[in-house]
């Protein structure tokens, strides 16, 4: 039960932050990426601001073995830079630039994004469904060393 309450609280902060920061406004996100147009630095403030509490949480987490609910804390980050990471991030970036939405804001604006957003979210969920097959194909084409 506590786990669910924590998840609701966390999702609520995330949703409120995405809304208040203006990150569900596709023009602001595309404005950040549009270095050769009317550049909008807001996204840098959002990411910078977000990294402060998380950075503190990472520092705190080092003194503990488990999280509050007794769940294990995440292992140290993998250092493996592979084709999936690079190709996936490039594909994501192109889609992000085309419409100005990444997965968080797409969900946060579900109630006010209009019909265009439904198309985007449906396609995003379809893409997520296809990803495991794409991952297998890539693993076959570029075997891990």
């Amino acid at each position: 039960m506590l786990r669910l309450i924590i998840a609701l609280l966390s999702g609520s902060f995330f949703g409120a932050g995405l809304f208040i920061s203006g990150m569900t406004d596709t023009a602001k996100v595309q404005g950040w990426l549009d270095v050769f147009g009317n550049w909008d630095p807001t996204l840098a403030f959002v990411m910078g601001g977000a990294m402060i509490p998380i950075g503190l949480a990472w520092a705190l987490s080092r003194r503990h073995v488990t999280a509050l609910t007794g769940q294990p804390l995440p292992p140290p980050p993998s250092r493996e830079i592979d084709t999936k990471l690079i190709l996936g991030s490039v594909l994501f970036g192109i889609g992000w630039g085309l419409v100005g939405l990444c997965p968080g804001p797409a969900i946060a604006s579900l109630t006010y994004g209009g019909p265009g957003l439904y198309i985007f979210v449906a396609a995003m969920l379809g893409g997520m469904l296809m990803a495991p097959a794409a991952r297998r194909q890539l693993d076959r084409a570029v075997p891990a060393e």
């Binding site: 203006g22 910078g48 949480a57």
Partner: peptide
């Protein structure tokens, strides 16, 4: 920018709660 920063702090707080509470990385 100010609203971006405030919103960012809220997003980060959500991530901190998820990490320290449930031991999970908040990735949408």
């Amino acid at each position: 920018w100010i609203w971006g920063l405030i919103g960012g702090l809220l997003i980060g707080t959500g991530g901190a709660i998820y990490l320290l509470g449930n031991g999970r990385i908040m990735g949408a």
